[in-house]
């Protein structure tokens, strides 16, 4: 059963080794990470699935990593800064089976993007609070509703597990909030960012799906798809309380950290 969900941004600059002090600009996000870690411990989470935005992302399928997780931050100039974690193969199998039963195109792969910082940053920051084995799956370029469906498959797989489980959606919001953004400034970015924060705060699938897909693309966001998967996973929870722990926009990028207390076991 899922007892906890979280939405985590993943700027590598959050890591002190890369940030070299600049991570202080996202102090609320770092504090929120610590809150998520504490909650994982409090709830004694034994199984965890992380949804990646930078793993194997393709047009037609979702992917799950069968091999153990390993990578580095070489793309960000820190090749000696690595991350690794053991993979929860049983959970991967359960997700694949649930997906197959629902006709959700989900495939297992044995290799992954080495520079996948969407899992690397959380593992570096709160790795000690994670179960010893975790499952990693990726979003895809399929439609928003397909992401919800993929999430439902994840939820079904975890619902059969009696141990307390968590799902983390890793994603940054808009990348074009100001002239210092990694992408070109887009005047619509602030509106999209606000809409994303509102939709996550109210935990509304409809609100998140109503954000125009073209505009989402224009402002270069990557949090909606993994969050829709998380929403699908938590669908039907008997208890669900979402709260935004941090929403800040340093470096012209929007970061939302949210914690969702839930219970999908008795619904």
């Amino acid at each position: 059963m899922i007892v906890l969900g979280a939405v985590l941004p993943h700027p590598p600059i959050l890591l002190p080794e890369i940030g070299q002090g600049r991570e202080d600009a996202a102090v609320a996000t770092r504090a929120a990470y610590a809150t998520v870690a504490r909650r994982l411990r409090e709830l004694d989470v034994r199984r965890l699935l992380m949804i990646s935005t930078h793993g194997i992302v393709t047009l037609g399928r979702f992917h799950a990593l069968k091999a153990d997780i390993s990578g580095d931050f070489g793309r960000f100039g820190h090749s000696a800064l690595t991350f690794a974690h053991r993979t929860d193969s049983a959970l991967i199998e359960a997700v694949l089976a649930a997906a197959a039963a629902r006709d959700v195109p989900f495939s297992a792969v044995s290799s992954w993007e080495r520079s996948d910082h969407s899992i690397g940053v959380p593992i570096r920051l709160i790795g000690e609070a994670l179960p010893t084995e975790i499952a990693v799956v990726s979003m895809s370029f399929r439609s928003a509703s397909d992401h919800v469906a993929a999430g439902r498959a994840i939820g079904a797989a975890l619902a059969r597990i009696e141990e307390p489980a968590a799902v983390i959606a890793s994603g940054d919001a808009v990348h074009s909030l100001s002239e210092e953004s990694p992408q070109r400034f887009d005047p619509r970015a602030a509106g999209v960012q606000a809409a994303i924060e509102s939709a996550i705060g109210s935990w509304s699938v409809d609100a998140l799906m109503s954000i125009d897909e073209g505009v989402r693309r224009d402002v270069d966001e990557s949090v909606v798809s993994p969050t829709l998967m998380l929403m699908g996973a938590l669908e039907g929870a008997s208890r669900l309380q979402a709260r935004i722990l941090a929403a800040e926009h340093p470096w012209g990028v929007g970061y939302v950290t949210a914690l969702i207390d839930a219970d999908t076991g008795s619904g």
């Binding site: 194997i56 037609g60 399928r61 992917h63 495939s107 297992a108 792969v109 044995s110 290799s111 370029f141």
Partner: peptide, 11 residues
């Protein structure tokens, strides 16, 4: 390789 669905798929 980048967008296709067959990359690294085992099953």
């Amino acid at each position: 390789d980048v967008l296709g669905d067959a990359q690294g798929v085992e099953e």
